[in-house]
Design a binder for these strands. Structure first.
Lengths: 219, 219
DNA sequence: ATTACTAAGCAGCGAGTAA
DNA sequence: TTTACTCGCTGCTTAGTAA
């Protein structure tokens, strides 16, 4: 959707066009948007074509109301701003399911981690990790997560080596309960390693390449 | 502010650029915005010029952070959406203080109205009305108010005539407690008649032509 | 008064490219 | 790889105006 049409729709909504028909000439809208009458008229025509508004054209006035399609577009925009300001306690990732190389099973199989998962996250993790390759641009969001802290699991010794400290975030994976596990050190990664009490691949019937939404909850 | 710059700022914020520096090339931003690298680069330059973002240009990456000016612009946009969706229990008017022709004092002086103000609004109205001439376009918001109902005061007889029914909305006038009074019949008006327990002109030191913000609270 | 067409002008876009 | 310049072209904007 073109940015200027969204702005126009927003102005209409602010004037009450979501719940009511409002009486508004293209000239008045133009003043509100700081543009010309012709441009405002064109915007209304475009919004009408896209079925985001309905109009009743009279000889001296037109009645405008935002349709459900238009309201959805605004609602969507509202969600973005909510995410920015209100729900900074929530970070959403989009990515694709990929296969690891089996190391997930090796690590989650370690009693040192498994016990801490149960104690700190409140569930017994299904063996193995569920790996989501996130879009490259979203790696910034991982930095965001790290800044917020998260649930830190202690390092431990086993099999005559050290298993490093990891940071966890409670999360949902396509809606299912789970957590994201990030190594404490090593900063960038384009794969989110997730654990869950469920076998996510089977429960959600997922395969490599499927689109996954991971929502991390902060604190 | 140009709509496309606001959209760009929003995307940056969604990637976490409000609280942190984020690492983002113009090419990546272009993908996010579905445009070309050149255009994304230009957007960043424009935002930089307007001091909405700061940049640290490295040879292989740039670090971007939204400034307080940029955050304000987003916050402002957020408020608009809040007004549309969350606080549809609140309607904001902007206008200028104007003088009535003294009829306000005549009406508010009527015991029939004064008693109902006290009983239904919870305050003893200072004699006279405080008249705010709203911008023409905002008359649609009055219709919005009427649709929500409001506090209806009964008509009564006095001085061998009928004083008609009016609809009130609790409101703040430049932050001060008060109410908007609309005649039950007669649909359009470009002047909001406000009452308050205070002498608003004196208390707020206001004069004709001053800008007034009236916030009406629904039910 | 309106809405909205046509036409001309101009802002913004992106290919090519330099640093 | 980057960022960001120039420049031609496209598409948006608006003056003029019809209905």
């Amino acid at each position: 959707m073109k940015p200027y049409l969204l702005q126009t729709l927003k102005e209409l909504a602010l004037l009450g066009a979501i719940h009511n028909k409002i009486e508004l000439s293209s000239h008045e809208l133009a003043q509100q948007l700081q543009t010309s009458q012709q441009t405002a008229s064109r915007y209304l025509l475009e919004l009408d074509t896209q079925e985001m508004i309905t109009r009743e054209l009279g000889v001296k006035k037109q009645l405008i109301q935002i349709t459900s399609i238009g309201a959805d577009a605004l609602e969507n925009e509202h969600m973005s701003y909510k995410q920015i300001f209100d729900l900074s306690s929530k970070v959403t990732f989009k990515g694709k399911l990929v296969s690891g190389m089996g190391e997930g099973k090796y690590y989650t199989g370690q009693k040192g981690y498994a016990d801490q998962f149960e104690k700190r996250l409140g569930f017994i993790a299904y063996p193995g990790t569920f790996n989501v390759e996130i879009e490259y641009i979203e790696r910034n969001k991982i930095r965001l997560l790290r800044n917020y802290g998260g649930i830190e699991l202690e390092e431990f010794q086993a099999e005559s080596r050290t298993f490093g400290s990891v940071v966890c975030f409670k999360a949902t994976i396509n809606g299912k309960e789970g957590a994201i596990v990030l190594p404490k050190r090593s900063h960038y990664a384009n794969v989110l390693e997730c654990i869950s009490p469920y076998n996510l691949r089977d429960t959600l019937d997922l395969h490599d390449g499927d689109t996954i939404e991971v929502v991390a909850y902060l604190q």
